[in-house]
């Protein structure tokens, strides 16, 4: 799990080829193919920035299957994702290249297995109580969480804030994506 967070942190900060400067405002995107919801057809992750300037960008993370059906989407702001809130005064606005590098890192998600998640010990009131080093949150009760973990399903984790990660699996009952866990410091 630590490797996942470290990977995402590194990926978000990684240098990436600078995208072409946007002609109007800050409209940039990056895509990455992953094998997650279907082993025989890759899903497409798109990370997009949109704003009058890059300092004012709303950023959007979307996963679609090979047919173009949306599986998951999430929106935040560039600064919430990179520094966790509004920037200090006199911060220079991010360049297209900086936002492009962030988008490339954001879209470049890692697919692991739900069995990589920490176990929820019997008798622990919450997942966080029995797992470390992060604070974990799940909407599932222990029985459902452990059942999903035992399936070792492909799990897609993405950054949902400067220091937070959310992980998705395909719910075996509904065959739709569901958030199995969110974690952070």
């Amino acid at each position: 799990m630590f490797r996942t967070l470290a990977f995402i942190a590194i990926a978000l900060g990684a240098c990436a080829p600078a995208p072409a400067p946007s002609l109007e405002g800050c409209r940039l995107n990056a895509t990455h193919n992953v094998t997650w919801s279907n082993t025989s057809a890759q899903d497409v992750v798109t990370a997009r920035a949109d704003g009058p300037t890059c300092a004012q960008a709303v950023v959007n993370f979307t996963v679609r299957n090979a047919n173009g059906d949306p599986l998951w989407t999430f929106a935040s702001t560039y600064y919430d994702m990179t520094i966790g809130g509004a920037p200090p005064p006199n911060t220079s606005a991010p360049t297209d290249a900086e936002v492009g590098a962030f988008l490339n890192g954001w879209a470049n998600v890692e697919v692991t297995r739900s069995s990589d998640l920490p176990s929820w010990s019997e008798g622990a009131a919450s997942l966080s109580e029995s797992a470390s080093p992060f604070s974990y949150d799940t909407a599932f009760d222990r029985e459902a969480y452990e059942a999903l973990r035992a399936r070792a399903s492909p799990m897609l984790c993405f950054a949902a804030a400067a220091e937070a990660v959310r992980c998705l699996v395909i719910d075996p009952l509904s065959n739709a994506p569901t958030e199995i866990v969110a974690y952070g410091p």
Binding site: G51, P52, T53, Q56, A57, V58, N60, T62, R64, N67, G68, D69, P70, L71, W72, T73, F74, A75, S76, T77, A176
Partner: peptide, 25 residues
């Protein structure tokens, strides 16, 4: 197959709130 995004910005264009979901789900 649409996603929908709601964004609130200040008059100067700074994002105040944003939220997204898949439309059909």
């Amino acid at each position: 197959k649409a996603i929908v995004v709601l964004s609130l910005r200040s008059e100067e264009g700074y994002p105040l709130w944003t939220w997204a979901t898949t439309l059909s789900h």
